[in-house]
Amino acid sequence: MQELESEIKNIIAEILEKDPEEIKPESRFIEDLGMDSMMALEILAAMEKKYKIAIPEEKLAALTNLNATLAIARECLAKKQNAHT
């Protein structure tokens, strides 16, 4: 779980061009970290690629901070695991 958090934090940091330390659990992507709509799409696509998961398009609006992003990733990963069992 720690690993997932740190990996996703790094993805976000790279895309938003910030230090990973600046990505606090509740920092708002748009207001605090300067995310635009293309960067949001890129974060989504980068997670899909890394974990080979499908994140439904409607989740894009929920990509508001690190905690929310982690929740989405965990949910999609769980779905993937269930599909395999």
């Binding site: 895309i15 293309m38 799409l41 696509a45 899909e48 690629k49």
Partner: peptide, 13 residues
């Protein structure tokens, strides 16, 4: 290579 779902949309422009 990766499948159409996994292209980086930010590279399209």
């Amino acid at each position: 290579k990766e499948g159409p779902r996994f292209v980086n949309p930010a590279l399209f422009p």
